[in-house]
Computed example of a mutant assay.
Amino acid sequence: MRNNRAEHRPNDEVDLIEIIQGLWLQKWLILTIVALFTLVGGVYAFLSQPVYEAKAFILPPTQKDIADLNYGRTNESELTPYSVKYVYDVFLRNLQAESLRRNFFREYYLPSLTEAERAGSRDGLYQRFSGDLSIRLADKISPDRFLLVMQSNDPAKAEEWAKAYVEKARLLAVREMVENVNREAEVRARNLARQISTLRENGEQVREDLVTQLREALRIAEAVGLEKPPIISGNLSGEVSANMSGELTYIRGSKAIQAEIKNIEERKLDDPFIKNLRALQMKYSFYKDLSVSPDDVAVFRIDGPIDAPDKPVKPKKALVLVVAVLLGGVIGIFVALFRTLYRRNDVLRSVGDRQ
């Protein structure tokens, strides 16, 4: 019984030499499959539309580029200066915003399609457009250097769209920063105007209080018959002169008090007598007239020009052909191997049936 098993085991096992012989006998089948895959790959490589890629390398602005944004923004003004990083982050946020991508899709991508292409799914078209546009870090060494890539079948269109997309992001970021600066200056000016108004109202009240105090002092001076300030010699004269206000105001004499009351009542403007008013007015005038022009601000830099590509990135013909040949070879060998094993099993079954 063991002898029978030993006799049949070699017939059941797969012989490598037999497999190689079987593959060699089917070499034309394998070559045919390879040729078929190579033909399909060649048709795809040479007949599919080429894809061109325009690139824009983006860097942060310099301190000089954002100088106009920081005009008047000092610690004394209670307005914190903008940093390069903050301004650049505003630009990157607008560059990567979904709203900008959607707007560009409607304004540029859809009008470039034919009526038949636009008849398809809008979501599908948007996904296709999102695949043509990518924004990512240019490399890991420079974490603030970004790369925008725009793909298109037309190299001129790829260049135009890349420039347009960056420009739209720039306009949005500049507008946001300028509006922030102008809004903060407007709020600051309004607060200063309120402080000036409060000081002026307080100045009027102080003037009325002073007139009331002088009238009381006048009544006292008239009651004691004091028209002129008394002549006091020695150190006492200096002490009295230094305290001729408040309760001792009447010592000035009725004539001097009457003249001061008349002068105060005829005063047309209290501004020169209000403390700190002029400083506030200067600040108010500065912030009221403060305005940043968008043309004077840069929120990013382009590292090199955005040129029209002259060489397509897809399809890579040589790579497509190599992959087609390899894939055809693998599938051809697999088919031939399957046929060899299938025929061998048929032969073994036939032999077993005869025995």
Rank of each mutant, 00 (worst) to 15 (best):
A169E: 03
S77Y: 08
P143I: 08
T114L: 05
Y250V: 00
G329K: 10
R102Q: 11
M177L: 15
K314P: 09
K316N: 13
I19P: 00
L326R: 09
H8Q: 12
A189N: 05
Y88F: 15
R190P: 08
Q26V: 10
G41D: 02
N263R: 15
S112F: 02
R301I: 09
D310Q: 11
K64I: 13
A156S: 11
D307P: 07
V84C: 04
L236N: 10
S152G: 14
I264D: 02
K288S: 06
A116E: 13
L248H: 05
A158F: 01
P312D: 09
S237R: 12
G246E: 07
V51K: 11
L236A: 13
G120E: 09
P143N: 08
L148E: 00
L113T: 15
R190C: 07
R252C: 04
R118I: 06
S99Y: 09
Q151I: 04
L327Y: 14
S350R: 13
R118E: 08
F300T: 02
W161A: 00
F273C: 08
N103K: 08
I58Y: 01
P309W: 00
M150H: 05
L47Y: 11
N3V: 07
S245H: 11
R188L: 13
A279I: 04
D68N: 09
N180A: 13
A259E: 12
G42V: 01
D310M: 10
L226K: 04
M282V: 07
A56T: 04
D310T: 15
N75E: 12
R183C: 11
I33M: 06
I196K: 01
A221E: 00
T32H: 09
L29K: 02
I274D: 06
G234Y: 01
G253K: 02
A156Q: 13
L39N: 13
T340E: 09
K228Q: 10
Q355L: 12
M282N: 10
Y88Q: 04
L248V: 06
L147A: 05
I196N: 03
P315D: 01
S245Y: 11
S350Y: 10
G328R: 00
Q151M: 03
M177Y: 04
D144A: 12
F334S: 12
N243T: 14
E78Y: 00
M244N: 04
S77R: 06
D154V: 07
T62N: 10
N263W: 10
P81G: 02
V313D: 08
K255W: 10
N70T: 03
I33C: 02
F146T: 04
R301K: 11
K64G: 09
I17T: 11
P111C: 04
S112L: 13
V178Y: 05
A162K: 00
A56M: 07
D307F: 14
D271P: 02
K140M: 15
V299S: 03
L172C: 10
I302Q: 04
